[in-house]
Simulated scan of single mutants.
Amino acid sequence: MNRRLLVSLSALAAFVVFAAAVFLYQRHTLQVAAFVASEQAGAMVRPHSPVIGIADAPVTIVEFFDPACEACKAFHPQVKQILVAFPREARLVIRYTPFHRESSVEAVKILEAARAQGKFEPMLEALLDGQRAWTGQGTRAIDRAWAIAQSAGLDVERARKHIAKGSVDVMLAQDVVDLKAIGVRATPTFFVNGKPLSSTDPGRLYDLVKSEVERVGKSP
């Protein structure tokens, strides 16, 4: 056996070992996530959580979501398509995950003020569409977020009064406690009926929801 072939076989063997290790690690991580989700089922959905879709849908998609997160914005069209595909079977529950700190917190406050005015979904779309304009730290970024919100129909004066009551701060603090208990470390993180999404591929989210819709449809 010549040296070049030996080196090639050694490299191939090393790659196979590496690939197997990655697979086992990912499987273990998914198993741990599923276990933690079952142990923290009460922390997965709270009464205060925004819901898109019918309230009694048998399939619940929980998204740990940061409005300032580019990946959350990228996933959002797929999430909407899933809700259109399964209008009576699936609902989306949003848990706020303010990993981008000041900009995230301000956007959450705007979203909750909009929800109080019955404008949550249009405001969510507006903030995601204009995400690049308002993400970042400082007063200027915050002002841009509020300008987008006002253009999307938010009554800013009512919104600021709603935020001043402090209920949004309490809600956000609970969401942060819950995401830490569940072990969420990145956004978006999805669970479908408590089952964690194992991939960053939006298509896999559709597959997971579809399998849950089919499963609950077969239940007696």
Rank of each mutant, 00 (worst) to 15 (best):
M1N: 05
A141D: 10
A90T: 14
K119T: 11
C72M: 06
V32P: 00
K80I: 11
A20V: 15
A33K: 12
K80G: 09
G203P: 07
R185E: 10
R204H: 09
I52Q: 07
T60N: 08
V45K: 03
S8W: 11
A113Q: 04
A11P: 00
F120R: 10
E89G: 01
V168L: 00
A68V: 07
A159L: 03
V177M: 04
K73E: 09
S211I: 09
P122N: 04
A149M: 06
L5F: 01
P220R: 09
I182E: 04
K80F: 04
L124Y: 13
S10N: 00
Y96M: 14
L83S: 10
R144M: 12
D178F: 01
R4C: 00
E121I: 08
V168A: 02
E106G: 09
T60R: 11
I61N: 06
A74D: 06
R144T: 15
I61A: 07
A113E: 03
S211G: 06
R4I: 13
V108G: 10
Q78W: 03
R158G: 04
S211P: 07
D129Y: 14
T139G: 02
H48V: 14
G183F: 02
V105C: 05
R3W: 07
I61H: 08
H48L: 12
V177L: 05
E112P: 03
R160C: 02
P202Q: 12
A43W: 08
Q117W: 13
K180E: 15
Q26V: 10
K165I: 01
Q150K: 15
F65V: 05
H162E: 10
R27E: 14
K180H: 14
G118C: 06
A173N: 10
H76E: 14
F190T: 09
T139C: 00
G42K: 05
K195N: 01
F23I: 12
A85S: 15
G53H: 06
G217W: 02
A149Y: 12
R88M: 11
K73P: 06
S151V: 10
E125G: 12
G118F: 07
Q40E: 13
A37W: 09
Q78M: 12
A41C: 00
D175C: 08
R115L: 06
V84F: 04
V216H: 02
S10G: 15
I182V: 14
P87N: 07
V51Q: 13
T135C: 01
L154W: 08
A71N: 00
S49N: 15
L172Q: 03
I54M: 08
Q81M: 13
P98W: 02
A57H: 02
S38D: 13
V59T: 07
L154E: 04
P77H: 05
